[in-house]
């Protein structure tokens, strides 16, 4: 059961990572990264149960908070930066 959940979460992580690399805007990357962080929390929680030692859930807790912090920090950066500069599509690559 936990193995199935772990594999599902890993597949999800791969898909969101694809979006994070594809873009096209920075907000898409940020959305994918935020979603990826939530999946990492789930992965660590499920993995702890899978190995039968669920003592390390504190780490998942830390991740959940750090993930939120990172997203909000980047968004704050946008708010203080020149708003027009943020939506440009990356022209090369």
């Amino acid at each position: 059961m936990f193995i199935a959940a772990t594999i599902a979460v890993l597949i999800t992580m791969a898909l969101t990572l694809t979006r994070a690399l594809m873009g096209p805007t920075l907000f898409d990357r940020l959305l994918a990264v935020n979603s990826f962080g939530t999946k990492t929390v789930m992965l660590i929680a499920v993995y702890g149960f899978m190995t039968g030692r669920p003592d390390f859930l504190d780490i998942a807790l830390v991740y959940a908070l750090i993930n939120f912090l990172g997203t909000v920090a980047v968004l704050k950066f946008f708010e203080y930066d020149d708003p027009a500069a943020a939506t440009y599509q990356e022209d090369d690559y």
Partner: peptide, 24 residues
């Protein structure tokens, strides 16, 4: 973990949508 996720995930999504709209 569930508690924090339920609070932070919607907040982050809202902030993301709003900042995207704000930047045009």
């Amino acid at each position: 973990i569930l508690f924090f996720t339920l609070f932070t995930a919607p907040t982050a999504s809202h902030a993301l949508a709003k900042t995207a709209l704000l930047s045009g």
